[in-house]
Nucleic acid binder design. Structure first.
Lengths: 283, 283
DNA sequence: CGACGCCGATACCCCGTGGGTATCGTTGCA
DNA sequence: TGCAACGATACCCACGGGGTATCGGCGTCG
């Protein structure tokens, strides 16, 4: 008789309809049926009378509905009290590059919702440090992209995006369905400043020879493409501005969106945040 | 934050020692450590201060300990109230052969403990019906041994016992460490009355040719061996009476202890009983 | 002062369960 | 009598909770 199961039961008992209850619980109907059946075996009594006409509560079910509601309320209270006792905690999350990934604010909101009383501070950094100041201790967790030097860091992959070349919309190659890196080797490529993580650096400059301007932020990259005739790389999936085009590259390893934290950091908020991040990115 | 996890936490918080808490919870220490760590991530705060000197509750841990105890008490109350609402229910359990298996009474007690208010009625039957009257509806669930005709029955295996030959202690073969069925083929074997389940019948009479007396109960089997010079089979594991010896048989399929109920019987008490039976027999 | 022992953490494996999709069976209704 | 609705069933996959083996840190003791 776990709390989750009781939440399921309350949902069914309130909807009096397995399908609707399943929808409300964001799951499908069969596992819900099974869970209720297990609960019935557990308490040793039928809780719901199923008939094609509809679902009804049995007398025992009615009792359990009241009791379960009370217990679940109580459980929420426990959460709140513990949160209150824990006091205001802050978690500093580092994100990369001008907050361009629209998912991140949603994620912060989701985490805040599930865990009120925790102050999430977002630190938006430029592209020169893919770990967003993790090593310097400026940040507890980083939501960022690979690849970078991972020593002494723990990495959790959230998603992988294929990568495309960013070109001016009027570039002759912009209409191509896909490209190979070699076709762009004669272009100028922007670089990151010296001292930038080598793995990161070499990934994003596409391995080409002709160096271009040094950039630090997403906006600078776009400007460089627009005005300097350079080429850049970008993960697919975001709609590019009208003046630009992103053409998939067939021979470029996909870019991984990751959550990273310092290895051995025992702050439980990190684990918790990473879990919700994983959940949010999964769907 | 499920109830099970909270029970774990309470155990650790009371023992202030992961190893002892794990023992109390009948589990090993690593999963317990992990569960507590998950709980800490879940509530977003450290609950226990681990130092080699020992484990201490953090302030947040102290709050959660109180809250968790209250919640768990409340959950027990829910159980009780639902049981009370369900009213007195009875479950008739059939067991085979003079209640000789010492585990069964313990199991009935365990089930009664976990589920007060349910009247467990044990029906002890003779050896002529391995299903203990399940088909006749005399019994809701049978704790018995295979093999038997399983059509329209659902079977859950609880344990398997190797089988030995039951001999008089002064029998020349009684001192042997193990035997083969062929070495006993010239003995008289007892039979069950006509009409007994064929699979059951043929299993226990060892496939030999010389027929012996007809028996119905365990006591009769023993008497037959003692006075009639017959041979019988018995699962190993029980200590035989002094005048008898049980010698392992190498070429006899082991005997399965099973819980059986009528296929499609939706009585939730059956499921519940079978679960505790599985748990009890597992250790 | 080094070897040992205690104890929680970590690594790794395996099975059970919780989730999913596809399909069935029953029943009320058109 | 065919159909639509809906819960049950069958099956599959992945994660989590359980296990064992081992590590690492820190006291203790010879």
């Amino acid at each position: 008789m776990e709390l989750r199961t009781l939440r399921y039961f309350v949902a069914v008992a309130e909807e009096l309809h397995f399908g609707r209850a399943a929808a409300r619980l964001h799951m499908s109907q069969p596992p819900l049926s099974r869970a209720i059946k297990r609960l019935e075996a557990d308490v040793g009594a039928l809780l719901l009378a199923r008939s094609p006409a509809g679902v009804t509560l049995t007398p025992v079910g009615r009792v359990l509905l009241d009791e379960a509601r009370a217990l679940l309320d109580r459980a929420d209270l426990v959460r709140d009290r513990v949160s209150a006792a824990a006091g205001p905690a802050t978690l500093t999350v580092g994100i990369l590059g001008d907050g361009t990934d629209p998912g991140i604010s949603a994620l912060a909101a989701a985490h805040r919702r599930g865990r009120p009383g925790i102050d999430i501070r977002v630190r938006d950094t430029d592209l020169t440090d893919p770990t967003c100041g993790l090593r310097a201790g400026l940040v507890d967790v980083a939501l960022t992209r690979g690849p970078f030097d991972e020593t002494a860091l723990t990495v959790r992959v959230l998603r992988t995006d294929p990568v495309g070349a960013v070109l001016r919309a009027d570039d002759p190659l912009a209409r191509r369905a896909r490209l190979r890196l070699a076709e762009l080797s004669d272009r100028r490529w922007f670089r990151f400043p010296p001292g930038t993580d080598p793995a990161w650096q070499s990934y994003w400059h596409g391995g080409s020879a002709r160096e271009g301007p040094v950039v630090r932020a997403v906006q600078e990259c776009l400007q460089a493409v627009l005005w300097n005739g350079t080429v850049g790389l970008a993960p697919l999936g975001h709609e590019p501005p009208a003046e630009l085009a992103v053409v998939p590259l067939v021979d470029m390893a996909p870019s991984r969106v990751v959550a990273v934290w310092n290895e051995g950091d025992t702050n439980p908020l990190i684990r918790s945040f990473v879990e919700t991040a994983t959940a949010v990115y999964r769907r």
